[in-house]
Each structure stands twice: as C-alpha cells, then as structure tokens.
Write a protein that binds this DNA or RNA. Structure first.
Lengths: 133, 133
DNA sequence: ACATCATGTTAGATTTTCTAACATGTAAAA
DNA sequence: TTTTACATGTTAGAAAATCTAACATGATGT
C-alpha cells in the first residue's frame, strides 16, 4: 500500500462539499458516522474532513439504502468486503511477487471493482473513481 | 473538453485544505487571487472553493516565486502558456480528427506537460496531477 | 397502539473564513 | 541613503460553516 491509496485516504473535503457531491444531508452523513460506516478525520477545531475513500463509501451507502439495506446490513457488508479485499491482496502477493507495486494495485483494483468488493458495478450514482481516471 | 477537465475545474476545497496542500499562507493565496493569477469559485456565503486546477496553479506560482519571478511575470507566463495550449489544441484537432475525445486529451496532456505549458517538468513540488495519475 | 429506525429541524456554541487596514523586511530607484 | 514598491505578516470585527445535543416526525414492524 502507498501512493494512490495514501491519496485516496487523505482528508480534504469539508462536509459542505461532501453534501453536494453525494446529495446526502449533513444529518445523514453524521448519522452514518455515528453508526461507524465512515470515520472522517477532524481538524484541530473538530470539523470533519473527508477523504475520497469516505466519499466513495457514502455513495455506496446511499445506494444500499436505496435498495432497502439498513445500517446493520451495510456494516456487515462493509466488513465482509474488507475481508475479501485482504484475502485478494494476499493472493495477489503470492501469485505474482515479481510485479510492480503499480501493476499489483491495478490488478487488485480490477478484481475488486468487478467481482468482489460490494458489487461496485451496481452503483448507479457516479463514484469517486472518476476523480482518478 | 469534458470529463477530466470538468472534474479538474470543479470547486471542492476550502482555503484551509489548500493551505496545507500547497504550504502557502491564506494571505499569499488571497494575494495571488487579487492579482488574478487564480480565480477560485465562491460558496453562496462568499467562502472560496478551489479546484484541482487552482491548486496546480498555486503550486506553479510557488515554484516561480521561488525562482524570483514576480506577479507580473507569472501573469505573463500564464497567459502565454494559455495561448500555447489553445494553439496545440487546434493543431491536434486538425491533425487527427478521427481520435477519441479521450485520446485527444491524453495527447494534448502529454504535449503540454512536456514541451509547452510552463515547463511543468521543472516543478519540484509535487503537483496535483498525482491526484489523477 | 407502540417501538424503532432514519431523517428533519432547531438552538446555541465554536471554528473557519472573509475583508480591510496597518506593519514590516527587502530590494530597486532616486 | 532615503524613498518606493512589492510580497507577506498580523490584527480586528463580521459573517458563514460546522458542531453537538435535543426534540419532532413519518414509515415500518410487532
């Protein structure tokens, strides 16, 4: 892990920007944090700062909610998905240890985007991956 | 123009985030705006919101200042560079009208990054292109 | 009818950002 | 060497954005 992942988890956006980007209310965003679906960073003055990963997660949450999933369900899905990602990462490491970090990450990314990770492909709302490429 | 360029010019970041990302003071950032080197968007409540392009420009400004260029010089450089970009764009359009928008943009991007546009390659500070890839 | 969930709304406090003004160090000009 | 201009720092007061906590509400399930 590094480079791209570091950038994706960098705290950059205030809640106002995130509201616009996700079309969620401040109340909703804070509620999801309360239920530990996201954990945005804080400024010294205690204002939330969201990363691109946070925003992606919020878009996923929004989608799942639209499909009727509740907080508990989303929480489960997230932790399962997290597991999967770890497993896939390990496999990739073993399978092709001569790959570049870059190549490895791209591989992983594809696998996750397509098969595993939260059926990312069903996300109707644009996700933040647009912001990379 | 569209897609990536739209995203790069989307107003997202408050001045606090930009200060950290660029290591410039609020005073400096506002001063550069005063001299029309950047034109960040505003919220309804008149707070500045910066785009990725704005941040790239600020990093360029910082570098030029380090090299002793003053406001007027930077302004000139920016407008010349702007010209170049337009010219290159036109040429590309004529030369290969059968290219995809995507392809075209990538082409342009390379040309601009390497030869033309503000000697981008001399930027020691990381620029925001990291945020795309 | 009652409880729970997800969200809205409001109030009061705190942080962040804004503009405008004045202060200062450095370098160029007179 | 005074004087100017430039780039930046600092401060003050106002306005906007965000925070937490509390209470309100519609939908759903029991």
């Amino acid at each position: 892990m590094s480079g791209k992942e570091i950038r994706r988890s960098m705290p950059l956006f205030p809640i106002g920007t995130v509201m616009q980007l996700t079309e969620l209310s401040a109340r909703q965003i804070r509620y999801y944090e309360e239920h530990q679906l996201i954990s945005p960073a804080r400024t010294d003055g205690n204002r939330r700062l969201f990363s691109l990963n946070d925003i992606d997660k919020l878009l996923e949450i929004k989608d799942l909610i639209d499909q009727g999933v509740n907080m508990a369900g989303i929480k489960q899905l997230f932790s399962v998905k997290e597991q999967q990602a770890v497993v896939l990462e390990k496999q990739s490491e073993k399978a092709k240890p001569e790959l570049t970090d870059e190549q490895l990450r791209n591989l992983l990314r594809n696998e996750i985007m397509h098969s595993g990770r939260l059926n990312r492909s069903t996300l109707r709302q644009g996700d933040m991956s647009r912001f990379f490429h």
